[in-house]
Design a protein around this nucleic acid. Structure first.
Lengths: 336, 336
DNA sequence: TTGTAGGCGTTATCAT
DNA sequence: ATGATAACGCCTACAA
């Protein structure tokens, strides 16, 4: 036999479909006795609402999309977890799209939502750049999570990249480092690497230290692997450095490993600080000093912003921007 | 103006809605010229299919549910990533439910699908036990991923828990350990801890070593935190042990940290092996020996099994079971 | 307080 | 090769 519909329940309870619907949706105008009858019939037939039908009728899906490079990374995993939890609080489900940090896939995620598969989209832009801002002019709610696309027309939840990086670098300097390297990605677009590199420079400059180009180490990918490899190369090349600011904890984990391979002692010879305060960082040996950007608040704000747009269909004008707070977490890798 | 529907496109192209639908779905019986006309009209009106309507009509959503304890863990994150990728290959989207390893939420996930929100469900059972097998008798496709619910009526993708744990423990013994501890969760239900504990015992027994109850260390939760704490306690209590088999890499990461805190050298004084081959394990200091359970194959099989049930509405009789291969990955923590 | 009618956008079926 | 018709199951109006 087929699954029970609202009609079946109505028949079984001796009422109209509308009354059943009213019971389901907790509408006020239903007599207690009627409600009971209906509830019993529902239980008896093991009735379940057909979400597809409801979606069609309502023009909503109750699901938001989350596009991130990959969930399998300490950082995006943490973020995804927080977003799923926040979405649940708002009565929304989350469907995840993995973009692999590729521009193409990020744009694809934007157009997927145009199928009205999702009520809205939270997009972590990594591959997209300045030039793609036009793509963000879509007619459904989008929140960008991560780096700013300057002048983009959509809501934005960001980290205090420059300030926090400056603080991280300053921390190294305060701990006595004079030759501080930075490990980042390509410094071109407005992105994590560029912004955090800016913070790094500011810190050096305000400490009266010069910025040695040799100490700016750009990686192709921000992975543990790349970090480890580069750290080994730096150590073996004889480059003079006594501190490393890694633009992500993931890179920093690699760096710690690479320095260990090269028998460089942390923090005695070189101090290391990361960015993200990933769960693992506390348990590394040595434990990793880092920047905590308050993931949970960011997630809550991103979902809140999106949910607001969805519910109230807010006008486009008042584009919102939220920048999280941060704190420096001092651990063993900087002698803490 | 409102979004374009199939009707609008039909009108604009001077054909019927059915023809447009046929074009969209690549049906064969459409003349080339007609197809062109329709495609142009679609482009002109910026037409997007309404997924909700299609779902209602087809009785499918094109989305599967994935219920895991939390995506924010190296292991489940890795798994989720692999499953999302596999699902994409099968033309399916993935919506993630976080259960927090709670029985209640796992059962909830099972009943969510009954809303026909998802075409099927991949469920990582952690909190559910033997006694809950009845709940699995649902009328839509479910694949259990993880430990076996003995006699459960649904498809199952599992790790070779016993064999792999035996191999891990044997590896420690071969490296000279004589007092091998195990760090696991409660050993009661048929679950990771119990199965892996069995493998542990088997290895000890076939090596002619006695099983010292003091060396069986049960944790409340399988977290880094719990692992680190217990390792410190073990070291400080003066317990005699020279090897530790951790039932998950996450626990092992904690253990490495805890032993470092207690100034116990790994692998010289104590050797450590984990289970899962999480991305991070290669980069820890010391790098972590572990069991690689071939996540990608497991994910592919789980999704494949589910997709098969969804497509072919296979009968219940032929319950499938797949057990992945495994390999021992030897690294520094066991002197590799 | 409850019921009736109609349509959300799509596609399966059956004609033509 | 194309089109007319009728659902899929629910809910917003309005009527009773």
């Amino acid at each position: 036999m087929n699954v029970a519909t609202i009609q079946d329940v109505a028949k079984a309870a001796g009422v109209s479909a509308m009354t059943v619907s009213n019971v389901i949706n907790d509408h006020p105008n239903v007599r207690k006795a009627t409600r009971e009858k209906v509830l019993q019939a529902m239980a008896r037939l093991d009735y379940r609402v057909n979400v597809a039908a409801r979606n069609l009728r309502k023009g909503r899906t109750g699901t938001i999309g989350l596009a991130v490079p990959e969930v399998n990374s300490p950082y995006y995993g943490r973020l995804a977890a927080a977003i799923i939890a926040a979405a649940e609080r708002h009565g929304l489900r989350v469907s995840i799209e993995q973009t692999g940090a590729l521009r193409e896939n990020e744009l694809e995620a934007l157009s997927m939502s145009r199928n009205r598969l999702y009520d809205g989209l939270i997009l972590s832009t990594v591959g997209m750049g300045q030039a793609d801002a036009e793509w963000l002019k879509v007619d459904y709610p989008v929140v960008i999570l991560g780096e700013r696309i300057f002048g983009g027309p959509v809501d934005h939840v960001a980290m205090p990249n420059i300030d926090a990086s400056q603080a991280a670098t300053r921390h190294l300097i305060e701990r006595g480092c004079r030759r501080v390297a930075i490990l980042c990605g390509a410094v071109e677009e407005v992105d994590v690497s560029t912004l955090r590199h800016t913070g790094y420079r500011l810190a050096l400059e305000s400490a009266g230290l010069s910025v040695d180009p040799d100490l700016v180490q750009c990686l192709d990918t921000l992975t543990m692997h790349a970090g480890a490899r580069r750290a080994r190369e730096m150590a073996h090349s004889g480059l003079d450095f006594d501190g490393v600011f890694c633009v992500t904890d993931t890179v920093a984990m690699g760096v710690l490993r690479g320095l260990a391979d090269a028998s460089v002692r942390v923090p005695e010879q070189v101090k290391v600080i990361g960015f993200d305060n990933v769960d693992e960082s506390e348990f590394l040996v040595p434990s990793l000093s880092t920047i905590d950007p308050d993931h949970d608040t960011m997630a809550e704000r991103a979902v809140g912003l999106l949910a607001g747009r969805i519910d109230r269909a807010e006008p486009r004008g008042d584009r919102q921007e939220f920048v999280s707070r941060f704190s420096v977490v001092v651990r063993e890798s900087t002698g803490g």
